[in-house]
Amino acid sequence: AFVIFSSRIQVKHKQNLILQGAPGVGKTFAAKRLAYAMMGLKDDSRIAFIQFHQNYSYEDFMMGYKPKEDGFELQYGIFYQFCQKAANIPDQPFFFIIDEINRGNMSKIFGELLMLIEKDYRGTKATLAYNGMPFTVPKNLYMIGMMNTADRSLAMIDYALRRRFSFFEIEPGFHSAGFQSYQSALDHDTFNILIERIKELNQEIAADSSLGPGFRIGHSYFCGQAECTDEWLKEVVEYDILPMLHEYWFDEPDKLQRWENILRGVFNDER
Rank of each mutant, 00 (worst) to 15 (best):
L186M: 14
E238L: 10
E171W: 01
A22C: 14
Q20C: 12
Q81S: 15
L141T: 02
L186C: 04
Y36I: 02
E204D: 12
F61S: 08
G104W: 13
Q54A: 13
D151F: 12
S166T: 13
N16K: 05
Y248D: 05
F222T: 03
S6F: 10
G64H: 06
M156D: 13
Q183M: 15
L34S: 02
E235V: 11
P93V: 05
G40K: 00
N192E: 10
R152S: 13
P23C: 08
R122C: 05
D44N: 15
Y80D: 09
E247Y: 08
K68F: 11
D70S: 12
S166I: 02
H53Y: 12
G178M: 14
G212N: 05
M146D: 03
S166A: 13
E200Y: 03
A86C: 06
A37I: 02
Y130D: 14
M143Y: 05
Q84I: 02
D208H: 12
L154F: 11
E59Y: 01
K125L: 11
Y130V: 13
A160K: 06
Y159H: 10
G265N: 08
F135E: 04
F168P: 00
H246S: 10
S176R: 06
R33L: 11
A35Q: 05
L245K: 02
S153D: 07
L141Y: 03
Y221G: 00
I241H: 01
Y58I: 10
D269A: 14
G24A: 08
L161Y: 04
Q81H: 09
E247C: 00
A129F: 15
F135V: 00
H53N: 15
S181E: 14
Y121H: 14
F174Y: 15
S181H: 12
L34V: 02
G224C: 09
I157F: 07
V11Q: 03
L161E: 06
A129W: 11
G132R: 10
V25W: 01
P93N: 10
T136E: 15
L242W: 05
E73C: 08
L194Q: 06
L161S: 04
L242A: 06
M115R: 00
F82D: 09
D99Y: 01
K119W: 08
D70W: 09
D158Y: 12
L17C: 05
Y221S: 00
D70H: 13
V11E: 06
F167R: 10
P23R: 04
G21N: 07
F49G: 02
A150Q: 04
R258E: 13
P253T: 11
V3C: 03
F52V: 09
